[in-house]
Design a protein around this nucleic acid. Sequence first.
RNA 1: GCUGCUAUAGUGUAGUCCGGCCAAUCAUGUCGGCCUUUCACGCCGACGACUGGGGUUCGAAUCCCCAUAGCAGCACCA
Length: 492
Amino acid sequence: MALAPELLEVHEEQARDRYALPPLPDAEKGVVMRFAPNPSGPLHLGHARAAALNDAYVRRYGGRYILRIEDTDAKRVDPQAYDTVPEDIAWLECAITETVYQSDRLALYYDHARRLIERGGAYLCTCDNDRFRELRQAKRACPCRSADIETNLAGFEAMLEGAYAEGEASLRVRTDLEAPDPALRDFPAFRILTSTLHPRVDATVYPLMNFSVAVDDHLLGCTHVIRGKDHIANTRRQQFIYDWFGWTPPHFKHYGRMGIEGVVLSTSEMRAGIASGHYEGWDDIRLGTLRALARRGIAPEAVRRAMLAIGVGETDIQFSWENLFAENRAIVDPVADRLWFVPDPVAVEVSGALPREARPLRHPGMPARGTRTLAFDGSVVVPTAELGNDLSMLRLKDLFNVDVSAVEDRFRFAYAGDDLAEARAAHAPIIQWLPLGETLPCTLRRPEGDLTGVCEPAVRGAVGGVVQFERIGFARIDRAGPEGVVAYLTHR
RNA sequence: GCUGCUAUAGUGUAGUCCGGCCAAUCAUGUCGGCCUUUCACGCCGACGACUGGGGUUCGAAUCCCCAUAGCAGCACCA
């Protein structure tokens, strides 16, 4: 035990290098953080960054991790997302301690609106939108701004009771008309929405994001907020609300924008692509949703590690699949059984060899995991792409060497000994193969297109798991039915 | 346009606050080699960056100014 601390420290140091995040201020006694998605569809890699970063800090400092469903805009609520979002967050293995729905809290927001009005921090505005915009641009107050508290209180109640139609009135926060950023000047806190019904509540007046977020972050006791920098203007707006109420705001951190090569991260674009049939669904492997990653066989841990490696930098970044794949490969390589898949197979007769069994290892690094048995009895299938006119010898992996000859366009193999060294000396490719009679039809689906072929029967036992198709890449076995196997390429 | 933020290799990232120990870290990638009955894993090596220009200083990736580029916001969305 006397020697251990040093070693531990070294290990910790090394581990910290790539995944460690900068320390948070005032966090030593624990933190309360939240992940607050809009329930508009399944979660994607962009959400995963926010979810994983907050999760990592809560794990590090201890405390509470709130999943807050921000469903105050009925137009942007997809009822299915009430299920998919928690499912996705559970898949990501984030340590959520409680879940709240903003649509459950409307009374709370109304109550705080009244209190804000009483403090002179908000007023009911019935100005035309364009008109208000002009005034705001000119740093001038709109006529509604000068109404007294009683009038505003009454106006807000009237708004709640349905005296105004959608768009006719809003409650605005009194900020600073001289604010250099026009976005900060008297922004709206509540609006009326009657054209779209909310799937969970019967209401016509809804808080806007800046109001509900500030109230909730305070009421729920959030100590630190980590979100994308698209919220930086919102943070400034929310500061006005904290000031009006005399609340201490949480610590904010805004990370940079993240793009992902070759993928749309916009929920609405994905939805449109699915509707048009371009994508098969939310788990189409060309998508950046967590469901798509799961279907491909990416481990949640890999996603979290990749996000931690990126960190909380404010620089805009282009996320690369290579980095995610590398994280995943490290996780999956030690556990994935090695199995054979022969793409675009061609049957070849082998002359001069007696029937025998090949017993390839399930994992070359762990012989204890055992072998599978493939019974050679005269003919094999091999990948067509391996055969060529200039090829004279190859080795059927874990079986024996063969001489290759071609008559017309038909290839023939002739037994050429068992000696592995000979094959190496001849630079013979060592390839996967299958007995002609022991194959299962198999489709390997890839973002760039499907690969069809056959795989060994043992693949049936790996449904739902990730295997490595030797010399092809890692793949998740999606299903195995009478019609054959469907697998998804995870990555090479 | 206005308001603000950011700028390190193909990608991500450390270093920037408190200038010298940075001829710049780590990972990934690519290439080469070794190992290996996989083109996986592992090991070794190579490649590859401080956006540009000024300034301050004995000394700048680090501080200042300008330029350029990118991004965000300027919604009764989140």
